[in-house]
Amino acid sequence: MTQFIIQRIYQTVIVLFILSLFCFLLIHMIPGNPVLTILGDEATPEEIRMLTEELGLDRPLPMQYLSWLGGVVQGDLGTSIIYREDVKDLILKRLPPTVHIGITSFIISIVAGVPLGVIAAVKRGGWIDGFITTSSNFSMAIPNFWLGILGIYLFALNLGWLPVQGYVSPTEDFWASQRYVIMPSLVLGLSTMAILARQARSSMLEVIRQDYIRTAISKGIKTRVVIRKHALKNAIIPVVTIAGLMLPNIVGGSVIIEQVFNVNGIGRLVLQSVFNQDIVVVQGCLIVLAIAVAAANLLVDLSYGYFDPRIRYK
């Protein structure tokens, strides 16, 4: 198991390294001279010289990368060109709503998706299965923003149950915060929930035709216990894999969700900075999100060890 953990951490570091290279090179992927692009046509040579120096573009590429990476490792993400603010501070300010909504939606999608899939599998062919399968196929086809707008219209404007948009931190007012977070989380997590439900259904169907399930039944155990004790833990393993793969989806979806629900999170920051051509901020956000996704993935992988003894005892 220790070896498995070390191996996973090692792989994560490599992935992060490659990702950092991408983030860094972003600045050079903009067509033309990045400095000119940022400053516009009316820039004076003096301004151009200063920004070039500030961005370190006068130095050789590997040097630029190393000093940038060195900064990132020490928590220095540079200074925003537009806001003239430390990027780290900017991100820290915007991170909580994104993380809050992201984690809530991930938890909802697992806690609801997996049992739905299991129920569908156990009642295979019945109307419950048909309902769950059809609605999950449907959920996967609906675009996030559309669902978000629909939700706002229905639950906020029409019924008045939930606030229209915005975000309140749980430290400020816990219950109000939940009311703000619930709808964006649901909208963000719905497609993931549907995918997990489908995966849980098919993996459960696969597991219940295994020989060891037949063994369990032949021992005289109740069907309910067979499902809960013998099938579920086996069926969950591939679901965990998919859940890990869905994380970037949730991060990506937050860009749109924050826009629709007017939440001042990282997603919006990225979008604004892209429009503002505030490359330093974009770089900073991307690297932070990459680290977050990689770390979450690492946790998901490590949870395999809990579910699958074959990995634990490798």
Partner: peptide, 15 residues
């Protein structure tokens, strides 16, 4: 009691 043919797959791998 029933003992099945496939010893490799007849026991639950996670218990």
């Amino acid at each position: 009691g029933f003992i099945f043919q496939e010893p490799m797959t007849s026991l639950n791998p996670v218990l």
